[in-house]
């Protein structure tokens, strides 16, 4: 049976789309049939991060409104045939997404895919609600920053009450913490909340810590999810995250300050 995973956060700009893109790409790289859906109607962006913006013909809302079928709207990833993308619509109609419509699309996708990754919009309005409503599991993306942590906690409240699982008493949405833009040097100086601080406050299991890295911006510039850059810490951290999600036991890297050797100090390695 297909697993539905929502990537959510409450606050915007914390790395939901970056995480959705890398997470889905990582699952597909491990042979899982994966589809990633952009729920941000009106502010489509996943296509850019995945590098398929020029191949969007039909979108999520077209499928819901019966103007296109799923096969026409799904965009095959250029690198991995296990991966497909369903773009968000650029319509300004906020009611374009309906609960019944979303449910039908998810049911149809579930026949074909192992994993359905739902990239939630920021906020707690309709799009965000529908992105999480049918989820089995949730990646809660958080920055070590007060407003992001508070918003993530709000979202945890919604995950425990405003989802199909909770309303139908079918158990809980399994929550995972993804801490992004982490800077161990600033944590050591006492300038930034630590992994432990955030974990203590949110009290959900930690799936991954993604270090702040310039590679995240260069990856989005070129439309290749950062997980494909395995020479970079952020890419490696996402790779670990996917492995952990699939049940591998991997230690958390990039949470401590890396002690630099003399040579790397000299050459800025």
């Amino acid at each position: 049976m297909a697993k539905i995973i929502v990537v959510t956060s409450g606050k915007g700009g914390v790395g939901k789309t970056t995480t959705s893109a890398s997470f889905a790409t990582g699952l597909a790289a491990r042979g899982k049939k994966t589809v990633v859906i952009d729920f941000d109607v009106g502010l489509r962006n996943l296509d850019l991060i995945m590098g398929c913006e020029r191949r969007v013909v039909f979108d999520f809302v077209n499928v819901i409104q019966g103007e296109a079928n799923l096969r026409q709207a799904l965009i095959k990833d250029k690198n991995n045939e296990n991966l497909s993308i369903l773009a968000a619509s650029q319509t300004r109609d906020k009611d374009a997404l309906t609960e019944e419509g979303v449910e039908k699309v998810l049911n149809d996708l579930a026949k074909e895919f192992d994993y359905i990754v739902c990239d939630s919009p920021a906020g707690i309005e309709r799009g965000a609600h529908l992105a999480m409503y049918f989820a089995d599991e949730a990646l809660v993306v958080t920055n070590p920053e007060v407003s992001s942590v508070r918003d993530s906690d709000r979202v945890l409240g919604l995950l425990s009450s405003k989802t199909r699982k909770s309303e139908k008493s079918e158990g809980r949405v399994r929550e995972h913490l993804v801490l992004t833009r982490y800077n161990p040097v600033r944590v050591e100086k006492g300038e930034m909340l630590s992994v432990k601080d955030v974990q203590d406050i949110l009290a959900i299991p930690l799936l991954g810590v993604i270090p702040e890295a310039s590679a995240v911006l260069t990856a989005s510039n070129s439309g290749a999810p950062v997980i494909l850059d395995q020479n970079n810490e952020a890419g490696q951290a996402y790779e670990d995250l996917v492995a952990r999600f699939l049940g591998e036991d991997r230690p958390h890297r990039f949470v401590e300050v890396q002690k630099k050797g003399f040579l790397s100090k000299l050459f800025g390695g």
């Binding site: 920053e145 007060v146 508070r150 906690d153 006492g190 909340l193 630590s194 601080d197 203590d200 406050i201």
Partner: peptide, 12 residues
């Protein structure tokens, strides 16, 4: 960071 943590614990 400690101030942030304490304030967050309260609001949460």
């Amino acid at each position: 960071a400690n101030t942030a943590r304490d304030r967050l614990m309260m609001v949460v």
